[in-house]
Amino acid sequence: TYYTVKSGDTLNKIAAQYGVSVANLRSWSGISGDLIFVGQKLIVKKG
C-alpha cells in the first residue's frame, strides 16, 4: 500500500494510523531520518 504524505503529517501519525512502527515505516520506504515531504509516497505494509 502506498500512502501519500499530506501537509501536517508526521511519521508518528502515519505509523499510528496504520498500526505499524515508525522503524518499519522508515525501512519499507527507505527513509533514514524523520524528514518527510508533502507529496512523498511511503510504502505501508499492514500487519
Rank of each mutant, 00 (worst) to 15 (best):
Thr4Ser: 07
Arg26Ala: 09
Thr10Gln: 05
Thr10Asn: 08
Leu25His: 00
Ile14Met: 01
Gly39His: 04
Trp28Val: 05
Ser21His: 06
Lys46Thr: 13
Val5Met: 02
Val20Gly: 01
Val38Pro: 13
Ala23Trp: 07
Ile36Gln: 02
Leu35Gln: 14
Ala15Phe: 02
Phe37Met: 09
Gly47Phe: 13
Asn12Trp: 14
Val44Met: 07
Gly19Cys: 10
Lys45Gly: 12
Leu42Pro: 01
Ile31Val: 10
Tyr18Phe: 15
Ser29Pro: 02
Ser7Glu: 15
Thr10Val: 04
Thr10Met: 03
Ser7His: 14
Gly33Cys: 09
Leu11Trp: 07
Tyr2Trp: 12
Ser27Pro: 01
Gly19Tyr: 06
Trp28Tyr: 06
Ile36Asp: 02
Asp34Thr: 08
Gly47Val: 13
Asp34Trp: 10
Val20Trp: 03
Gly39Thr: 03
Gly8Thr: 05
Val38Gly: 04
Asn12Gly: 14
Val44His: 02
Trp28Phe: 05
Ser21Gln: 06
Gly39Leu: 04
Lys6Met: 10
Thr10Pro: 01
Val20Ala: 05
Ile14Ala: 00
Ser21Leu: 07
Gly30Leu: 07
Asn24Tyr: 07
Ile36His: 01
Asp9Cys: 04
Asn24Trp: 08
Leu25Arg: 00
Ala23Thr: 10
Asn24Thr: 13
Asn24Pro: 00
Thr4Phe: 12
Lys45Ile: 11
Asn12Thr: 15
Gly39Lys: 02
Ser7Lys: 13
Ala15Ile: 02
Gly47Ala: 13
Ala16Asp: 11
Gly33Asp: 11
Trp28Thr: 05
Ala15Val: 02
Ala23Val: 10
Gly33Arg: 05
Lys46Ile: 15
Gly33Gln: 08
Arg26Thr: 09
Gln40Tyr: 04
Gln40Asp: 07
Lys41Asn: 09
Phe37Val: 11
Gly19Ala: 09
Lys46Arg: 12
Phe37His: 11
Ser21Lys: 06
Val5Ile: 06
Ser32Pro: 08
Ala23Met: 09
Leu42Tyr: 01
Lys13Ala: 13
Gln17Leu: 15
Val20Gln: 06
Ser29Trp: 05
Lys13Cys: 11
Lys45Pro: 10
Val20Tyr: 03
Ile31Thr: 05
Ser32Gly: 09
Gly19Phe: 07
Gly30Lys: 10
Lys45Glu: 10
Gly8Gln: 05
Ala15Cys: 06
Gly19Arg: 09
Phe37Ile: 10
Asn12Ser: 15
Ser32Val: 15
Tyr2Ser: 09
Ile14Glu: 00
Ile43His: 08
Thr10Asp: 08
Gly19Glu: 09
Tyr18Asp: 00
Leu35Ser: 14
Val44Leu: 09
Val38Ile: 11
Ser29Cys: 06
Ile14Thr: 00
Thr10Ile: 04
Ser29Ala: 08
Ser21Ala: 07
Gly33Trp: 06
Gly19Met: 08
Ser27Met: 14
